[in-house]
Design a protein around this nucleic acid. Structure first.
Length: 639
DNA sequence: ATAGGGTTAG
């Protein structure tokens, strides 16, 4: 073994000698001595160039043996110069005219990763068979020029050659890769005409095709028409629902799989389900999935554990996330990054930094996403100096160039801390093109600090990107109203009304005993509305005694609400919290999920509520968690 | 002696 590897760096010819020895030795019994000085030359001498005349028995056996040697030689070669030499030899012995041999050689060329040469060789084959086409199609489908696979497919069909189901599946995969629905649809039509609709694997590929183009309905249709569904088909269906935002249905499908018992959920299913729970913040269901994972014996699978860390973190359940993390035998960069991000999004920035240092001590190398977690930890806790230091460190020490997410965290960090112009300069001077999200982050910071001239500039950038959304105008509206710019407020309102721009209503939900209760601004739809509003009045009185002052200049989530003070007292998160206080035992932790950012006033309200009513409150909004306890927030009041 | 398919962690 060492002998062979020692020769790899020498001339190619040496490598051939060794490969030959290797392949011959695997074909001959150990009692037959192997030539000591066997080389390409001596090999060529023993290979007859002319096989027009019938050979005596003995000769043909040796020829057969030589061909066998060539087969194993070609099979074991992926090194291009090496293959070129073999090709020269094969051409001389006219072995390449044999379709089987040319196919074998073509596949070796394909695995040598030089597809251009493989293609050149292919074009020299006189009558390429469908097998030849299939081999090349397969190679192109996983290359960085997947479109070639489709061209080859078309070419072979024009020649009247028929692709088999496996080749169809490669062609579909290529269409996914070069993002052409049109080509994929054509191929699907062909698959129907060829009658390959009972092939479960091929249909699964088709589902994946539709799923990747967000045509959930088409993917479902393919699934429904499958005569035999296996677990992978279910998984593709589930991943399709997950990708297209139908997260609730993922949970339903998981239950369905379990109940039907035909296709038991496997580790991949569990992975998808934990992701769905993370997206929904569905802690109870997540715990159920976790139990199932343990039951099925997947408890030690690291990818599942990593996903569970993220799930528990995103449900605001950091202790459980940490339990899973502790249980991982060998933590990799993904485990660490998941834990760091989990700490970050729950407001434990200092701990996230400590975790990072611990990770470094154990010798795990951080990557891009580790730094995303780390920088978001800094931005959520207002650690400006630390954050800027990490931004420096990542490229200098680890050679990781900051991407848009890293810059996004830095803009958030600087912006929240009030360094608005500096944040603006970061966006302008960064090497990547600013996207709508990063502008929106800055807009959020302008809202916090009531900086309307910069806010207007940011809106211009968003308009330039054709990415301006109703929510952006609402932010600007709030900037105007918080700075008392009432003229601009009515001007903007008029503009929005004229353009018919609809805003997303703020919506908060609270899960109690497995039932999700949803509230919107000034909600009157809940059956217990009277009790809820009474409770809210009572809470307001109590909090006022403790020193809470409603911030009347703040947040208008709904454009149609004209009376600010009124709307403020009935923001959806307040309703959800009041409902929680109303129906749970004192001391119970309340978990509220909000679709937009929590406003300053509600944040303040929650802080007082946690102290006065002695409740732990966990509010998850669009960007992060806010843990309230004893009148404080985990993010150190930092906005 | 002939290539070879589908889902999947932060």
């Amino acid at each position: 073994m060492t002998q062979i590897s020692a020769c790899i760096n020498k001339k190619n010819i040496t490598i051939i000698v060794f490969s030959l020895k290797l392949s011959i030795s695997s074909f001959t019994s150990t009692t037959i001595p192997i030539h000591r000085h066997f080389s390409l030359q001596s090999f060529q001498e023993t290979c007859p160039n002319n096989d027009q005349h019938p050979k005596p028995m003995l000769k043909s056996t040796s020829r057969h043996q030589q061909e066998q040697t060539m087969v194993s030689l070609v099979k074991s070669s992926t090194h291009k110069p090496h293959l070129l030499q073999i090709q020269a030899h094969l051409t001389r012995s006219s072995l390449l005219q044999n379709p089987k041999f040319s196919l074998l050689f073509l596949s070796s060329l394909c695995s040598s990763r030089d597809l251009r040469y493989a293609r050149l060789f292919f074009s020299q084959i006189k009558n390429p068979s469908s097998s030849h086409y299939n081999t090349l199609i397969r190679a192109y489908s996983s290359s960085n020029s997947p479109k070639e696979a489709f061209f080859l497919y078309r070419e072979m069909r024009q020649k009247g050659l028929k692709p088999d189901p496996i080749s169809f599946s490669f062609v579909i995969k290529s269409c996914v890769k070069f993002r052409s629905v049109f080509c994929g649809l054509q191929v699907h039509g062909r698959i129907i005409r060829e009658g390959f609709l009972s092939d479960c694997l091929l249909l699964t590929t088709l589902m994946e095709f539709y799923s990747s183009f967000a045509s959930r309905e088409d993917a479902c249709k393919v699934f429904d028409e499958m005569s035999q569904k296996d677990t992978v088909a279910w998984n593709v269906l589930i991943s399709c629902y997950l990708r297209n935002g139908r997260t609730r249905d993922v949970l339903m499908l998981f239950d369905k799989m379990k109940n039907e018992g035909v296709c038991e959920p496997d580790d991949v299913t569990c992975l998808l389900v934990t992701q769905a729970c993370a997206n929904l913040g569905a802690l109870e269901f997540g715990e159920k999935a976790h139990r199932y994972i343990k039951e099925r014996g997947y408890g030690t699978a690291r990818n599942l554990s990593n996903s569970l860390i993220s799930m528990y973190s995103r449900c605001g359940c950091l202790d459980k996330a940490y339990d899973v993390f502790k249980g991982i035998g060998e933590k990799n960069v993904i485990s660490w990054s998941a834990m760091i991000s989990g700490l970050a999004m729950n407001g434990f920035g200092r701990d996230a930094i400590l975790a990072f240092e611990e990770m470094r001590r154990t010798g795990v190398i951080p990557d891009e996403q580790t730094f995303t977690g780390l920088l978001s930890a800094c931005s959520h806790c207002g650690l400006v100096d630390e954050g800027m230091e990490f931004l420096n460190q990542m490229s200098k020490e680890f050679g990781i160039m900051p991407n848009i997410h890293h810059y996004g965290c830095v803009v958030d960090l600087l912006g929240r801390a009030g360094f608005l112009e500096q944040a603006y300069r970061v966006i302008i001077s960064m090497k990547v093109k600013p996207d709508a999200t990063i502008w929106r982050t800055l807009l959020g910071a302008c809202r916090i600090h009531g900086h309307f001239t910069l806010g207007e500039r940011v809106i211009e950038h968003l308009i330039e990107l054709k990415a301006q959304e109703a929510g952006d105008y609402v932010l600007l509206l709030n900037i105007y109203s918080s700075t008392g710019n009432w003229e601009k407020v009515s001007e903007l309102r008029k503009f929005l009304k004229e353009k018919g721009i609809q805003t997303t209503p703020g919506c908060s939900s609270i899960e109690l005993k497995g039932i999700v209760h949803e509230f919107i601004v000034d909600d009157v739809s809940h059956p217990q509305k009277h009790e809820i509003y009474n409770k809210l009045d009572e809470i307001n009185k109590q909090l006022k005694i403790a020193g809470y002052v409603a911030e009347t200049t703040s947040e208008l989530h709904d454009l149609d609400v004209e009376e600010k003070a009124n709307a403020l007292s009935y923001h959806s998160e307040k309703l959800a919290l009041a409902f929680g206080v109303l129906v749970t035992q004192p001391g119970t932790t309340l978990r509220v999920t909000k679709n937009l950012r929590i406003c300053i006033d509600c944040h303040n309200f929650a802080k007082f509520l946690s102290g006065v009513y002695n409740r732990q409150l966990i509010i998850r909004d669009r960007t992060r968690f806010h843990h309230f306890r004893d009148g404080h927030c985990s993010c150190n009041d930092y906005w």
